[in-house]
Amino acid sequence: MAFEIVVVGTSYGGLAALQVVLPALAPDFGLPIVVVQHRGKDTDNLCEFLQRHCALPLAEPNDKEAIAPGRVYLAPRDYHLLVERDGFALSTEAPVGYARPSVNVLFESAADVYQGHVVGVILTGANADGARGLAKIKAYGGLCVVEDPAGAESRGMPQAAIAATKVDAILPLREIAPFLNQLCQHEPGSSYAS
């Protein structure tokens, strides 16, 4: 199964976790990475902050912007971020589980469009957002990676994700980027999992 997109969801503790994952991504990382970090409405500078920890170009996408490989996209504050066949779509629908952006909204839209070609990653967080979305990614044949709750800053989100579906890998935070780098090196058409 060749993967086409990586989606990442995190909440409490996510900023520190992303500072571990993003710098360790290969500079020639071949897939787009889309990140939902739960954030307040006053977090205008998050993008600039995270870019300092990331060799890949990182940006908040505009509505309908094309999705390019080797880039990191951060869901803007106070919008849901969805993916479609030809680019991003933003929405101001009601918060889902108190969250806007919501991890579930991103993950579910990614599964809808990319079907089995999605890698879903859940990192630290104190709620259960992302569990339903990760289960959908799994149901469509995608690959599910979860930060090991034992070492997570906050175990809620990893635990909820593990309870919701049969995840493919539970990894300590430091091993997540190397794992993604390796997935990315697989030639298109080669098979990782069943």
Partner: peptide
């Protein structure tokens, strides 16, 4: 309409 969000709704 943009398909992802209308489908959700």
């Amino acid at each position: 309409y943009s398909p992802a969000s209308i489908k959700r709704r």
